[in-house]
Design a protein around this nucleic acid. Sequence first.
DNA 1: AAAGGCTCTTAAGCGAAATTTAAGCAAACC
DNA 2: GGTTTGCTTAAATTTCGCTTAAGAGCCTTT
Lengths: 225, 225
Amino acid sequence: MRVLLVEDETAIANFIAEGLEEEGFAVDVAHNGKEGLRMALDNLAEYDLILLDWMLPGASGIEICRAIRKENQTVPVIFLTAKDTVDDVVFGLETGANDYLRKPFAFEELLARMRVLLRSSTGEQNIFSYADIELDVATHRVLKGGKPVELTQKEFALLELLLRNKGKACRRTRIIEKVWDINFDHDTSVIDVYINFLRKKLDVPNQPSFVQTLRGIGYRINDDA
Amino acid sequence: MRVLLVEDETAIANFIAEGLEEEGFAVDVAHNGKEGLRMALDNLAEYDLILLDWMLPGASGIEICRAIRKENQTVPVIFLTAKDTVDDVVFGLETGANDYLRKPFAFEELLARMRVLLRSSTGEQNIFSYADIELDVATHRVLKGGKPVELTQKEFALLELLLRNKGKACRRTRIIEKVWDINFDHDTSVIDVYINFLRKKLDVPNQPSFVQTLRGIGYRINDDA
DNA sequence: AAAGGCTCTTAAGCGAAATTTAAGCAAACC
DNA sequence: GGTTTGCTTAAATTTCGCTTAAGAGCCTTT
């Protein structure tokens, strides 16, 4: 974990830097605003977190924070400053900082707040695909070759079922149960009709269909892509 | 934006809830620990942010926070509490909270800190836009082609939800839950009416609407601008 | 206290789109 | 070649969203 600390008072800078190093962080220190700005912009991708004093000779912490946010929306920034009115805090946070500690602060609290910001958030996705067809359950979107294809509810539900079972056969009775109702009239041709709708929207002309017909059983999307 | 507030002192709870509602949040209040725990776990996915008092009858804020983190790693949690030692703060943050405010706090600071957490859960932004429409969460204003457009709370909340999810489908049930209430009568046409209001205020006559209807699903603002 | 205005919600008719049915045709299997 | 099963199309039916209008609730003004 690499941290950039911009702080002009040497005593405070050393205190924080040493404390963080003991905790296993790699710390770069900038002792004035200009140096801080340069270091931040030169190696922005290298830093996992940035600590900024507000009042600095050369360039203020606010300016540095704005410059950082222009380049990189995600790297966490914490203000450490003696400016302690509510307006200061609000202003600092609106500039793009993720947290704001009023001096004097306890080192332990700084550490705890840094760890909060470093806890990585992992967003998971629910995407199923075959060849150049992609279906995103979360956003309810289907792409074909990168371009959006508008599907109706039933079309989407049917395609989702088939893709979730890629490589496996989907029996007609199971399709009826999952996409339509358990108590759906069993001799109907809705499935055929909807398979036809999907093929019209997703197949490439004069090419084998993306979904195989299993005569007497149901349908299957192959496993090969 | 839907917020769960767990706070046993009625006066404080009302003060915060009303303030947040004026800012356009949908707020659910739990008045003791047990209720808070139940509400949090029952509808965790619906909340965009959770505010917890520490000392509560029934179950402590710490317990609630732990239970939340067991289920969901990402929803932002802020402690609001009179426990003000550094050890308390560190302990609270290590339990999984994202921020910690010592009582008494300024409402403005709470708001600013909430906005920090809400923008980082949606990509570090306070301004959302589509084509010449701009929505600023911080100032609660909407511009169309640079000119201010007056929107009501509900209109604003709906537009914000749609813009935060630009490119994604917003399902009707999700819209009802986020902008109206979790327990809102589900067969109502409020959504249609409000979409209509937004279209009247923001669309260009004889041009496709800024928001697409996804029949049977909900609405979407496209990704292309 | 009444009047007016604003926001939010409900309800109903209309029209368009989605879904289902039905029927004739084509392909596969025996 | 006959039978079964699936494909395709068009028409019938149903659902869903759009649009209006109107009423309830609340706040402000007089």
